[in-house]
Amino acid sequence: MTDRSSKDSGRDLARLIGAEAAATKPLRELLGERAMECADHGAYRSSGVHFLGIKEIWTPCPDCEEARLAAQRHAEAQEQAKRARAHLEAMLDQAAIPKRFMERSLDNFVAETPEQQRALSFAREFASNFTHHAKRGDGLVLSGLPGTGKSHLATAILQSIMPAHVGLYITCAGMIRAVRATWSRDSERTEVDVLRELSSVDLLVLDEVGVSGGTDNEQELIFDVLDRRYRDMRPTVLLTNLDRARFKDFVGERVYDRLTETARWVTFDWTSYRPTASKQFAVERARTA
């Protein structure tokens, strides 16, 4: 045997002996406690552990460790809140809620009369039990003069069901424009895309139904969207200034028949809500400024 092969054999034997020795050592050996000094908090007792006879680890100052964990929890909470705010802002943007109504909620709706309290009660119930209503395809028709708070309650419902559910706010005219825009040659979306979006969101709020006289094509579009949502059991909230008879004439017999089956009619039979609402929001802004 040459000197070189002897040396290699010796090294192999040493590694084998070292591996066997390491294998006989416990993975984790307790070293007991010892007194230690923290520059910030003074004396404390530290517990030590020996891993594989190689590395010693001693517990840090408990006050320092608690401060570190508290800072970590705070940073994680801030990051979580930041993500939640970004998610909510994205959902609000996706829901297309007008900026004027983003501060509207069920809590700041002024309900002074029994009729207003009744309307608010229906809105609260619908929002609170939306999962139940979504399974049944239930909806609402909010009917009343301009400025009575229909859009307030409808957009408040939209925001109340977030982030569990995604909704969409659009006016009747806006829906028709969105469909007509797809007829352009350079449109990136097709009419099918728009109808699919309108038909598939968890909650569709369709405002200003009947503001302008509806053509046969517009009535057919409204029927198409509402019929799709009816068949797929998707809730819809419709807002109109019309009474029942004129609303029926506008949407047509087929749409009205669908709504009679699935939607609750809520009448807003009081004077304009806007002067009272403006004063209330001015007070709220001054208080939170």
Rank of each mutant, 00 (worst) to 15 (best):
T171Q: 02
I161N: 00
D216F: 00
I176C: 08
S184K: 13
T155M: 02
G174W: 11
R189W: 04
L153D: 12
L168W: 08
D193L: 11
L168C: 06
E191A: 10
I157F: 09
T155C: 15
G174E: 14
L198N: 06
A173T: 15
T171S: 15
M175W: 01
L195G: 03
A164P: 02
S199G: 15
L206M: 14
V211N: 02
R180N: 12
Y169I: 01
I157P: 06
P163T: 00
S187E: 11
T148E: 06
A181M: 10
N217Y: 04
S200Q: 15
S212H: 05
T171D: 02
V205S: 13
L203H: 09
V179N: 08
M175I: 01
E197N: 02
L198K: 07
V192S: 15
T148D: 05
H152N: 07
T215K: 04
G167K: 10
R189K: 13
H165S: 03
V194R: 14
S199N: 13
E197Q: 07
S212W: 01
L168G: 06
R189M: 10
Y169M: 01
R196G: 03
M175L: 15
A164I: 02
I157M: 08
Q159E: 07
A164N: 09
L195H: 07
G149L: 06
R177G: 10
A156F: 10
D216K: 00
L153K: 13
K150F: 13
S184T: 03
W183N: 04
D186C: 06
L195K: 15
S212I: 00
V211A: 11
N217T: 00
T171G: 05
V201I: 14
E188N: 11
D202E: 15
S187D: 10
D193T: 10
G174K: 13
L206D: 10
T190C: 05
I161R: 00
R185V: 04
I161Y: 01
V192G: 09
S187I: 03
D186N: 12
D186G: 07
S199A: 15
M162R: 01
R180E: 12
V194T: 11
G210N: 07
